[in-house]
């Protein structure tokens, strides 16, 4: 058990979501859910972050942004796709400007279902993300 499990810092990016999952991600920080209990901080800065929470799907325009943000995060890092859109494109998969889930662009470690994903499942996704983070750290160390 390393410090990673006690201090996962989050970067949130809204791909092309409807806002539903985004506000639920924010709701996780607020008094009712208060993820800071677990040391989670919403950094808003890729260079400080360990866990990349992406909501919404990928379109032509945000591919570069998502790759760029992911690239700026220092290792070890994990990606959590939050909500149906981030997992597969969701209801918008049929829209002409949508290319699909986040895994088309960057490797995804944890998929959180739901439309919109509930705060409880987002927190669960982060916790699973921590486990993935821990594994990656071990791999790096060995």
């Amino acid at each position: 058990m390393s410090m990673f499990s006690r201090s996962p810092w989050i970067l949130h990016y809204d791909g092309s979501s409807c806002n539903g999952c985004d506000i639920e991600v924010l709701a996780c920080l607020t008094p009712l859910y208060d993820v800071e209990r677990f040391g989670v901080v919403n950094t808003g800065n890729p260079k400080h972050a360990d866990i990349f929470l992406v909501t919404g799907s990928v379109n032509e325009r945000n591919i570069d942004i998502i790759q760029n943000l992911y690239g700026q995060m220092p290792d070890p890092k994990v990606v959590v796709a939050v909500g149906a859109c981030a997992c597969s494109g969701g209801i918008f998969a049929r829209a002409y400007n949508i290319q699909g889930g986040i895994d088309k662009v960057i490797p995804v470690d944890v998929y959180v279902p739901g439309c919109a994903a509930r705060p409880e499942s987002i927190i669960d996704g982060v916790v699973q993300g921590i486990a993935a983070l821990e594994e990656k750290r071990k791999k790096r160390a060995s």
Binding site: G15, I65, A95, Y96
Partner: peptide, 15 residues
């Protein structure tokens, strides 16, 4: 803008 443009108006073609 355009980062969230999904083109959902055009989904009337298929939905």
């Amino acid at each position: 803008i355009g980062y969230i443009h999904r083109g959902l108006e055009m989904m009337v073609e298929r939905v």
